[in-house]
Design a protein around this nucleic acid. Sequence first.
DNA 1: GAGTTACGCTACGACCTGTAGCGAAAGGCA
DNA 2: TGCCTTTCGCTACAGGTCGTAGCGTAACTC
Lengths: 210, 210
Amino acid sequence: MCSRTNRSSRTGRPRSTEADTAILEATRAALVELGWSKLTMGDVAGRAGVAKTTLYRRWANKSELVVDAVAVLFDELELPDLGSLQADIENVVLQFAALLERPETKTALMAVVAESTRDEPLRERIRASIVDRQKRLVLEGRMRAQRRGELPADRDPVAVDATDDLIFDVIAGAVVHRALVSAEPVDEPWVARLSALLVGGLGAASAAGG
Amino acid sequence: MCSRTNRSSRTGRPRSTEADTAILEATRAALVELGWSKLTMGDVAGRAGVAKTTLYRRWANKSELVVDAVAVLFDELELPDLGSLQADIENVVLQFAALLERPETKTALMAVVAESTRDEPLRERIRASIVDRQKRLVLEGRMRAQRRGELPADRDPVAVDATDDLIFDVIAGAVVHRALVSAEPVDEPWVARLSALLVGGLGAASAAGG
DNA sequence: GAGTTACGCTACGACCTGTAGCGAAAGGCA
DNA sequence: TGCCTTTCGCTACAGGTCGTAGCGTAACTC
């Protein structure tokens, strides 16, 4: 009854960590060259120098593999304190935009999200390894702005959570939509406008007592 | 040299319009039952009661077919004058959210956009038949708000275009992200928050002379 | 009627999926 | 050292999809 999802099953030959990294690296390379739809498990196995069966021992299908391959790229996102809420927003938005410009993420992100609408485990995997990682930045940025006095201190914790969620969907959604649907550049002028809109909107809301 | 993209080639047997509608209807039904990734051309042909070759005479691949099948649903979007910018926004956002809740669009939209990152003709098809159709609503809503005096009259036309683009990406992006990535309901409370944020942000920007 | 195009049908090669079975390799444990 | 367990690479495979070609027939124009 030893579940193979246990970390490091205590007996038997251990999984090759070199194979793990080789496969994920090969997946990113295949995404760049072929894109999501033409990427195949056999191709990735060949690039990684492992057998196809080795892939299927680790990932149930292409979507889960690609999520893991792309997730690590989101570790690069950072939120240095630039002194003002607007500057912090502009900085992280530009980082996020640079990430979306990379061919690996460009072709993969929307595809796995599309897949996740009919695949609950996949949705959970995306949430845990990509979405939550971004959401923490919103939390951090909001608290920092409160410390600076740019935003009022918490009163109703439920409302605060809702605002965090809203800001997250607005920022991430707008950037993704601009980059992938409108297919126009997420450059400084646009980011400045977006940040101004957000800061202004948050200020107006708190001034109105929301 | 008669291009088959000409509308109604003057000679020969004409394309069956019944086949057209049957195929698009079958495509939507297949999207509901199977979702994007399990939808196949052969299955759609079977549902529509036509030969597979008939599909390939009209659409080069699955993506183009699905775009056409889903595009008509976006004709339902309307922008009745509800008296205020915020009310207009809330109304159209709720309509858009209802559209995204439908299983056909939910599974198809992100998938074709993902595909379009490596397929320029497909991107153009999406833009022409889906994106521009939504964008017109932003234009209409902004002009209406100007007529009401809620927003200042145009000064710099370039800045106005940029603001329209921004608003469009923010609204559409936020709703899509909320519905498909965060996978949480786009309900009245959330929409009210979003609209308030936007109206407040636009007001602050124009008050600041932007 | 002659010419042209769309239609349904069948068949097909190429490709991808996901699994099964094999012997060998690499660990833990007594 | 020997036994047990699991992973490894490899091969093979059934099942399914793609997109096209070829055929005879149907429908419409001039």
